[in-house]
Amino acid sequence: MLLWLILGIVIGAGLLFLKNSSIKLAWFDWVVLVLAIVFYILAIANYNGSMEELEPRAAMFLLASFGIPALLLTVIVVVRALRGRTTA
């Protein structure tokens, strides 16, 4: 429960910061960002759940399976945001 509360606060704060900061994201970036967040949540939830199930091998596999796409999607958004800044 606490995990979800902390995660909700972190995601909410992050999105608020992005919305109010000078970083301007296109609609496409927002879609990719939301997708990345979904993957992060799946990675954390499955890792956590699998560890509770006493399945560490499955936990690592699922963390990588959902976590790596999440990281790649985040990199896409960050790179595009940085490019936007330099070209602006």
Binding site: A45, N46, N48, G49, S50, E52, E53, A58, A59, L62
Partner: peptide
């Protein structure tokens, strides 16, 4: 034969 804690 799995438990149900993990979303997967």
């Amino acid at each position: 034969s799995v438990k149900d804690r993990a979303l997967i």
